[in-house]
Amino acid sequence: MFPLMNELFLQSSFRPLSVLVFHLLLTHSQSQSQLIGPSQPIVATVGDDVILPCHLDPAEDVGTMILEWTRPDLKPIYVHMRRAGQDLVDKHPSYIGRTSLFINELKHGNISLKLSKVKLSDGGTYHCFIPKLDKRSSVELVVASGAASSPVISLSGTDSNRGAVVLECESKGWYPEPEVLWLDGEGNLLSAGPTETVRGPDDLYTVSSRVTVEKRHSNSFTCRVQQNKTNQTRETEIRIPGRNYMFLQF
């Protein structure tokens, strides 16, 4: 009888201990997990569909958990929400009908967001969040206009005393705002005046810049307009042999 009682006592003693150990291991596992987003901004062009990556590492089934995508600069801040296995429509009006998760990937801890028909206004920092695990990550989305024009170079003026001409360069349809560079025939940067920037009602930028070039320079000059975040570049070359000039666009 006593051995049986001892065995029952040991079983009853170890049961809460095993439960405690299990909870400790679970808590430790959750504390070690991380939500991983991209280290570099995601670049998209207006009208494209884009994926904002976010996944749990190590992988864990999050299909029944509350999942949130937000943009802190918006009101309301919610871009996409999923609760009790259902996507909610209570979010910022701009994103209604344009966001979705990869349902079959939730069991692998992948809560990446698909954003359809990207708009200029979609550019910003997004947060993916799992409240139960208290895990959060961020994704920066940069949206390019896709409508940037090749620069147009014109002869803006001359200085006969210095044997110099003033060239003006203009390019339209940029977003985000680009920078303007002038280069000589050897690819060296030229000192130019400040870039003038105008933002239109469509939120697209028009930029222009002037440079004075003298006889000591080569007869070939390039206006380059570039946006480093979106990896967009447009450039036009002008050649000035004597009094004649022509344009080469790229």
Results as ranks from 00 to 15, higher is better:
Leu167Asn: 04
Leu167Glu: 00
Leu167Asp: 01
Glu168Asn: 15
Glu168Thr: 13
Cys169Val: 05
Glu170Met: 14
Glu170Gln: 14
Glu170Val: 15
Glu170Asp: 10
Glu170His: 10
Ser171Thr: 04
Ser171Arg: 02
Ser171Asn: 05
Lys172Arg: 12
Lys172His: 11
Lys172Asp: 09
Lys172Phe: 07
Gly173Met: 09
Gly173Trp: 08
Trp174Asp: 01
Trp174Phe: 06
Trp174Ala: 02
Tyr175Gly: 05
Tyr175Arg: 07
Tyr175Met: 11
Pro176Leu: 06
Pro176Thr: 04
Pro176Tyr: 04
Pro176Gly: 02
Glu177Gln: 08
Glu177Leu: 04
Glu177Gly: 00
Pro178Tyr: 09
Pro178Cys: 07
Glu179Arg: 10
Glu179Thr: 13
Val180His: 01
Val180Cys: 03
Val180Leu: 07
Val180Asn: 01
Val180Met: 03
Leu181Thr: 12
Leu181Lys: 09
Trp182Glu: 00
Leu183Val: 05
Leu183Tyr: 08
Leu183His: 08
Asp184Arg: 01
Asp184Gln: 02
Asp184Ile: 03
Asp184Cys: 03
Asp184Ser: 06
Gly185Lys: 01
Glu186Lys: 10
Glu186Ser: 09
Glu186His: 10
Glu186Phe: 12
Gly187Gln: 00
Asn188Glu: 14
Asn188Gly: 09
Asn188Gln: 14
Asn188Pro: 07
Asn188Arg: 14
Leu189Tyr: 08
Leu189Ile: 07
Leu189Thr: 08
Leu190Gln: 00
Leu190Ile: 10
Leu190Pro: 03
Leu190Glu: 04
Ser191Glu: 12
Ser191Val: 14
Ser191Phe: 12
Ser191Leu: 13
Gly193Ala: 10
Gly193His: 06
Gly193Asp: 10
Gly193Pro: 05
Gly193Met: 09
Pro194Phe: 13
Pro194Val: 14
Glu196Ala: 13
Glu196Tyr: 11
Glu196Trp: 11
Glu196Leu: 13
Glu196Phe: 12
Thr197Leu: 11
Thr197Asn: 12
Val198Gln: 10
Val198Gly: 01
Arg199Ser: 08
Arg199Lys: 15
Arg199Ala: 08
Gly200Leu: 13
Gly200Ala: 14
Gly200Asp: 12
Pro201Val: 14
Pro201Ile: 13
Asp202Cys: 06
Asp202Trp: 03
Asp202Ser: 07
Asp202Glu: 06
Asp202Met: 04
Asp203Leu: 15
Asp203Ile: 15
Asp203Ser: 15
Asp203Arg: 15
Leu204Gln: 11
Leu204Phe: 12
Leu204Met: 12
Tyr205Ile: 03
Tyr205Pro: 02
Tyr205Ser: 02
Thr206Gly: 02
Thr206Phe: 06
Thr206Met: 04
Val207Ile: 10
Val207Lys: 05
Val207Cys: 03
Ser209Tyr: 04
Ser209Asn: 15
Ser209Met: 10
Arg210Pro: 00
Val211Glu: 01
Val211Arg: 03
Val211His: 05
Thr212Ala: 06
Thr212Asn: 00
Thr212Phe: 00
Val213Ile: 13
Val213Phe: 02
Glu214Asn: 05
Glu214Phe: 12
Glu214Ile: 11
Lys215Glu: 06
Lys215Pro: 01
Arg216Pro: 05
Arg216Lys: 14
His217Thr: 01
His217Ser: 03
Ser218Ala: 07
Ser218Arg: 04
Asn219Ser: 12
Asn219Asp: 11
Asn219Tyr: 07
Ser220Trp: 05
Ser220Cys: 11
Ser220Glu: 11
Ser220Met: 09
Ser220Gly: 05
Phe221Trp: 08
Phe221Thr: 02
Thr222Ser: 10
Thr222Lys: 01
Thr222Met: 12
